[in-house]
Design a protein around this nucleic acid. Sequence first.
DNA 1: TATGAATGAGTCTTCATTCAT
DNA 2: GATGAATGAAGACTCATTCAT
Lengths: 199, 199, 199, 199
Amino acid sequence: MRHQKVDVILQAAVEVFSDQGFDQAKMDDIAQAAGVAKGTIYYHFKSKEDLFTGLMDEGMEKLIGCAKRHIDSEDSPVDQMHGLIRAHSQFFMENGKLAKLLLNEAFGTKERQQKFRASIREYILLIESLIEGGIATGDFQFDYPSEMAVAIFGAGSVLVLHKLYTLEDSAWTSEQSEEVTQMTIQSLSQLVFRSLLIK
Amino acid sequence: MRHQKVDVILQAAVEVFSDQGFDQAKMDDIAQAAGVAKGTIYYHFKSKEDLFTGLMDEGMEKLIGCAKRHIDSEDSPVDQMHGLIRAHSQFFMENGKLAKLLLNEAFGTKERQQKFRASIREYILLIESLIEGGIATGDFQFDYPSEMAVAIFGAGSVLVLHKLYTLEDSAWTSEQSEEVTQMTIQSLSQLVFRSLLIK
Amino acid sequence: MRHQKVDVILQAAVEVFSDQGFDQAKMDDIAQAAGVAKGTIYYHFKSKEDLFTGLMDEGMEKLIGCAKRHIDSEDSPVDQMHGLIRAHSQFFMENGKLAKLLLNEAFGTKERQQKFRASIREYILLIESLIEGGIATGDFQFDYPSEMAVAIFGAGSVLVLHKLYTLEDSAWTSEQSEEVTQMTIQSLSQLVFRSLLIK
Amino acid sequence: MRHQKVDVILQAAVEVFSDQGFDQAKMDDIAQAAGVAKGTIYYHFKSKEDLFTGLMDEGMEKLIGCAKRHIDSEDSPVDQMHGLIRAHSQFFMENGKLAKLLLNEAFGTKERQQKFRASIREYILLIESLIEGGIATGDFQFDYPSEMAVAIFGAGSVLVLHKLYTLEDSAWTSEQSEEVTQMTIQSLSQLVFRSLLIK
DNA sequence: TATGAATGAGTCTTCATTCAT
DNA sequence: GATGAATGAAGACTCATTCAT
C-alpha cells in the first residue's frame, strides 16, 4: 500500500494542476492543499515535473484500463464501441479534474508532452482497433479508420470538456451530473454509429 | 496600415507562443525572434498578456471570417457545411503555428482563456446554426444539434492538430501538405455527413 | 571599457567570496555589497559559478602576468627568481582578499577547481622553468626541480596566507604592511636561494 | 572502545568530506556511505559541524602524535627534523583522504576553521622548536625561524597534496605509492637542509 | 539504539516590466 | 520611436535537523 501522504499529495496535485495548469501551479499551493510541508513533496517526488508526469501517466493508465475493461466485457464490435463511449464519458465526467488535466496538457509542444502523447496514441489505437474490428465483421464501413479514431477521440474529449467548463461553476447535483453524462453518451453514440454503421 | 515593427513582433510572437506555450514563452525570445529590442515590444504592447490576447483574438477573428466567407458563398446547408469543413481544415493546415496556438490554449482555466472561450463559443454557434439550418430544410437530422456542433469542432480541431504534430518534424512538401489537407477534409466530411444526413 | 556596474559587482564578489568561501557566499550579499539588485548580477553573469570562475581566472591571469613582468625585467636566473618572489609576495599582500580567494579554493575536489588548477599548474611551471634555467646556467643545483617548484609555490603561498590571517584583525598601517611584505620576501629568498645556489 | 557504528560513520565522513568539502557534503551521502540511517548519525553526533570538527581534531591529533613519536625517537635536531619530514610525508601519503580534508579546510575564514587553525599552529610551533633546537646546537642557521617553520609546513603540505591530486585517478600500486613517498621525503629534505644547515 | 519520514528556513535563478537615454 | 540595462518579486528546489516509532 502506498504511503498515505503520497496519496494526499497526488490528490492535491491533481486539483491544483487541473485548476492552474502546469506552469501556473505552485508547489507551495500543492503543499498547502495537501496539508504538508513543501519539503515533504520533494521527499516523495523528484521534481514538479516528476509529480506531474506521474499524475498524467497514472491518469492515462486508469483511463485506458477503464476503457479496456468496458470493451472486454462485450463481444460484438458494436457493443464494444458502445462500451468505449460509455467508459470515456463516464470516466471523464466522474473525474472532472483529471479530465481537464489530461486534455489541457494533451496538446502542447514541450518534451514533457511528447512522452504523454504516446499514451494518447495508445488510446487512439485502441479506438482504431475497434473500428477495424467492426469493418472486419462487416458491421462498420468507413474509408479512413485511422482518421476516424482520432476524430472520435477529439469529439468525445472536447464534448466532455465543454460540458465540464460550461457547468463548472453551477452547483451540480449528482442527478444533473448523471443526466449530462447520459446526454453526452447518447449524442456521441449517435455521431459515431451513424457514421460507422452500414446503411 | 499597421506599423511595420508591430507586424514583425506579432509574427514572432505567434511562432514563439505556438512553440512554447504562453507560460514558457519569454519576452526575450519573442524580441530576439522579431529582431527588435525587448523594450520595443513594450512600446507597442501593454504586456505579455496583451500581446497574447491580441494574437488569439485576431486569430479567431480570421478563422471565423474565413469560415463565414466560405459559408456565405454557398446556398444550401449541405454545401455550407462543406464550406465550413473546407475552411476549417485549410485554415488550420495553412496556419499551423496559429492552429497550435489557438487549440493548445483553447482549454485551460485561467481568466485569459475565459475571454478567449467566448470566441470559441461564437465559432461553435456558427456550426450549430448550420446544423439547425439543415434540420429546418429537412436535409439534416440529429437529436442533439448543440452537442453535435461541439463534437464537430472537437473532431475537426483534434484531427488537424494530430496531423500537424505527427508530421511536425518530417520535411513537408506543399504537395504532401495539400494531400493531407484533402484527406482531412474528406474524412471529416464523411464523419459529419453520415451522421447528419437523413438516410 | 567594461561596463561600470560589472566592475562594481566583481569587486564586491571578491570581497564576499573571499570572506565567506564559495558555498557560504550568498548572491544577496554580493548584490548588497555591490549596491545593485540581485537581478543585475544575473544580467551580467550567467550564474554564481560563472561569476566565481571569472574571478578566479582573472585573478590567476593577473598573478601570472605580474610574475612574468617581474621575470622579464631581469636577465639572470637568479635575478629572475628574485623577481618572482617579489612579485608573488607583493601581489598577494597587496591583494589580500584575492589571495585568500585564490589559495582557499586552490585545493578542493569539485570540477570548478579542476579547471582552476590548470592555471595553478601554469604558474608552477613558470617557477619550474626558472629553476631549470638556473640549472642550465650553472647557477642552481637541485635534484628535483619539479618538486622544488611546487614546494616554492606552497611555501610562498602558505607563508603569505599565514601572515594575512595572523594579522587579519589588527588594524594595519601601510608601513607595517610593507614591513611584513619585506620580511616575507627575505625569508622566502633565504629559503629558496640557500636551497638552490651552488655552494 | 568506541561504538562500532561510530567508527563506520567517521570513516564514511572522512571520505565524503574529503571528496566534497564541508559545504558540499550532504549528511545523506555520509549516511549512505556509512550504510546507516541519517538519524543514526544524529544519534551519535550533535550536528554536521560537530562531526566535522571531531574529524579534524582527531586527524590533527594523529598527525601531531605521529610527528612527535618520530621526533622523540631521535636525538639530534638534524635527525629529528628528518623524522618530522618522514612523519609528515608518510602520514599524509598513507592517509590521502584525511590529508585532503585537513589541508583543504586548513584555510578559510569560517569560525569552524579558527579553532582548527589552533591545531595547525601547534604543529607549526613544533616545527619551529626543531629549528630553534638546531640553531641552539649550532647545526642550523636561519634568520627567520618562525617564517621558516610556516614555509616548511606549506612546502610539505602543498607538495604532498599536489602529488595526491596529480596521481589521483591513476590506479596506484603500493610500490608506486612508496616510491612517490620517498621522492617527496628526499626533495623536501634537500630543500629544508640546504636552507638550514650551516655551510 | 536506530530509523527515515517530515519539516521549513534558506538560496539560486528567472523574467515581466520599467525607464533613462 | 527604439533601446537594453536594471529591477525585484516570485518560485523551484535543497538539506540540516527533528521526532515519533
